[in-house]
C-alpha cells in the first residue's frame, strides 16, 4: 500500500530528524546560540561511536555512556571560553546571535579539519542491529526503530525537565528574556552554559545513534546542521514537542517526494518547506506570536 509505504519509512526517517534536532532545540532555542558547527559535532560523535565499535567492540548503546559526558564537557568549555564572552559583548540579541553564528562557523571548520586529518575524506559505516523486521507490510531495520524510540524518550524527558523542574523553568525564563531573568536572581551565564552543554550531550546521542545505520564522512556535517535547523525553526524555536512533530513531518514529506516525484529533489523539497514556514509562520508551526 503506497500510503503505508510512505508514512512508515517517513516516520522512521522523521524520528531520526527529530533526534538530531533535539540538541539544537536546547542550544539555539534555549541557550540562544545558533551553533553552525552542530552537524560537525554530530558527525564527530558518529566517528567516536565507529571507533569504539571497530576498535573495542563496544556497542553504540554502551558508547553513549562515554560520548555524552565527553560531548557535554567539550560543549561546556566551548561556551565558557568563547561564547560567553560574545554574549557579554553583544549589545542586543541580534548582535549576540550574529557573533555566535560567526564564531561557530569557525569552529565548524576546526572540527571538520580535525576529522579530515584523523579519518580522511572517505565514507564510513558499520553494521549494528541492522535486522530487518516487517511492520504492516513494510520492511524496516531494528536500528532505525531504536533511534525512533530514543527520539521519543529523550524528547519526552527534555520536555518534562524543561516544564516540570525548577532549573528547567529558570532556563526557559532565560530563553524568553535574559535580562529579566537576571533580575529575578537567575544565574544566566551558568544556566545558559548548562543548557548549551546539555544540548551538546544530545548532539552526541543523535550522532551515536545515526552512526548505526547511516554512511557518513568528515565533510557531511552541513547536511545535518541544515536538517536540524529546518526542524527547529519549523517546530518553533525552543519548543521541544514542536521539534518532534516537525521532524516527523519533514521525514514524511521527504519520503513522499522521493517516492512520488524524484529522489534528487528531496533537499529542494526540504528548503521549499522551510522557506514556506518562514514566510507564512516565522514563529514555527507551533510557535506563539513573535515577541
Amino acid at each position: 500500500m503506497l500510503l503505508v509505504d510512505i508514512v512508515l519509512p517517513g516516520l522512521v526517517l522523521g524520528g531520526m530528524y527529530a533526534l538530531i534536532a533535539l540538541g539544537l532545540t536546547l542550544q539555539y532555542g534555549v541557550a540562544r546560540i545558533m551553533n553552525l558547527s552542530y552537524g560537525e559535532s554530530l558527525v564527530a560523535a558518529a566517528f567516536g561511536a565507529f571507533s569504539l565499535y571497530s576498535g573495542f567492540g563496544l556497542s553504540p548503546l554502551a558508547a553513549l555512556l562515554f560520548a555524552v559526558p565527553v560531548a557535554m564537557a567539550l560543549n561546556w568549555l566551548l561556551y565558557r571560553f568563547l561564547l560567553e564572552r560574545l554574549m557579554r559583548r553583544g549589545k542586543d540579541r541580534g548582535a549576540q546571535e550574529i557573533d555566535s553564528i560567526l564564531v561557530t562557523f569557525g569552529v565548524l571548520f576546526v572540527i571538520q579539519g580535525a576529522m579530515l586529518v584523523a579519518f580522511g575524506g572517505q565514507y564510513y559505516s558499520y553494521s549494528y542491529l541492522s535486522i530487518p523486521v516487517v511492520v504492516l507490510g513494510s520492511t524496516l531495520a531494528v536500528n532505525r526503530l531504536v533511534a525512533l524510540l530514543f527520539a521519543a524518550l529523550v524528547g519526552g524527558a527534555v520536555y518534562l525537565a524543561l516544564t516540570r523542574t525548577r532549573i528547567g523553568t529558570a532556563v526557559r525564563a532565560i530563553a524568553v528574556d535574559a535580562n529579566a531573568a537576571r533580575l529575578v536572581g537567575i544565574d544566566v551565564a551558568a544556566l545558559s552554559g548548562l543548557a548549551f552543554a546539555f544540548g551538546g550531550g544530545l548532539v552526541a546521542v543523535g550522532g551515536v545513534l545515526v552512526s548505526m545505520f547511516l554512511t557518513f564522512n568528515a565533510a557531511m556535517g552541513v547536511v545535518f546542521t541544515m536538517k536540524a535547523l529546518v526542524v527547529v525553526i519549523m517546530g518553533g524555536v525552543g519548543n521541544v514537542m514542536g521539534a518532534l512533530v516537525a521532524g516527523l513531518l519533514l521525514g514524511i514529506v521527504e519520503t513522499a517526494v522521493a517516492r512520488l516525484v524524484d529522489p534528487g529533489l528531496t533537499l529542494a523539497a526540504t528548503y521549499t518547506l522551510f522557506l514556506g514556514v518562514l514566510l507564512i509562520k516565522p514563529t514555527g508551526l507551533f510557535g506563539r506570536a513573535a515577541s
Binding site: L86, V103, G106, F109, V110, Q112, G113, A114, V117
Partner: peptide
C-alpha cells in the same frame, strides 16, 4: 588547512 582557517576565523571574531 581547514583547522587553521577555522582558528583564524574564531580569533578574528573574538
Amino acid at each position: 588547512f581547514s583547522i587553521v582557517l577555522g582558528i583564524v576565523f574564531v580569533l578574528i571574531v573574538m
